[in-house]
């Protein structure tokens, strides 16, 4: 039984003449313990798909299954790392992580003890007392990561988790994520716009077409050895072959998504 299965998913926004079909006819299945990266031009509906799987958004057609169950309401087995900042600004880093356990009925002191351990795992042992506005972008993402992981969800939905970070920090965060994932391989759906990141992390890279009515246009298996280290894996010749192949699929779509803008500045789409 796959961890996640999407069958003919279509999502539309608005009604009547303003109806906008973001994604259409998306079939995808993620095996338990599989790390799948989704790449695609901006606005193609990557976040939309994750929202459908997480149960935050209803598909207008098709069916979504999480661990074999049709999605209805919030998908309990899923942890979700959002593209935008989602920490509660009125709670310290420690409280933000601990609250994920407290709401399951675990006592405050025990929750905080475990939260401290998780903050240490993401390298923030000394930052527990800080409020989100006192943390850097990368530190906030790591707190959010700890907040998601502490509940031990079986499926991870990650939406450009390292999006706003600089290239070096992204690589370090990627390595951290792989290290944590290696310990108890969960199913992961990882959205990114960074091809290198997708290949370095994933078992499979899914390419989506430009919207509207975006669909999956290609899938590439990544047969690079694990455990991986981002800096080294990038030197592997197989990495470059993959990179080229995926970019071939993606380029036309990115051009299409930016078509109007390219035309506007006199470039050739």
């Amino acid at each position: 039984m796959p961890a996640v299965r999407l069958a003919g998913i279509e999502v539309s926004f608005g009604e009547g003449t303003t109806r906008f079909v973001a994604v259409s006819g998306v079939d995808l299945s993620v095996a338990a313990g599989e790390f799948v990266a989704i790449v695609g031009p901006t606005g193609c509906g990557k976040s939309t798909l994750l929202n459908v799987i997480g149960g935050l958004l209803n598909a207008s057609a098709g069916a979504a299954f999480v661990e074999g169950q049709a999605v209805r309401g919030i998908s309990k087995p899923c942890g979700y790392l959002f593209q935008a900042d989602a920490l509660m600004p009125w709670k310290t880093a420690l409280a933000n992580v601990a609250v994920a356990l407290e709401i399951t009925g675990i006592g405050r002191s025990e929750a905080e003890r475990q939260a401290r351990a998780f903050l240490a795992r993401v390298g923030l042992a000394r930052f527990g007392d800080r409020y989100p506005h006192q943390l850097s972008g990368g530190q906030k993402k790591r707190v959010a990561l700890a907040q998601m992981l502490i509940r031990d969800p079986r499926i991870l939905l990650m939406d450009e988790p390292f999006g706003p970070l600089d290239a070096q920090t992204r690589v370090l965060m990627g390595d951290l994520l792989l290290k944590l994932w290696q310990q108890d391989r969960k199913a992961v759906l990882f959205v990114t716009h960074d091809l290198d990141e997708a290949i370095a992390l994933a078992d499979r890279v899914v390419v989506m077409s430009a919207g509207p009515q975006s669909r999956i246009i290609a899938q590439h298996r990544v047969d690079l050895p694990r455990p991986r280290e981002a800096a080294e894996i990038r030197l592997d010749p197989a990495f470059h072959v993959l990179q080229k192949a995926i970019w071939n699929d993606l380029r036309a779509e990115v051009m299409r998504a930016y078509g109007d803008e390219f035309a506007a500045i006199g470039g050739k789409p």
Binding site: G54, F82, A86, A100, I103, A144
Partner: peptide, 14 residues
């Protein structure tokens, strides 16, 4: 913030 709300719901808050 809708994101904070969605995140809290994904964490399992009633």
């Amino acid at each position: 913030s809708q994101t904070i709300l969605a995140n809290a719901r994904m964490l399992g808050m009633n």
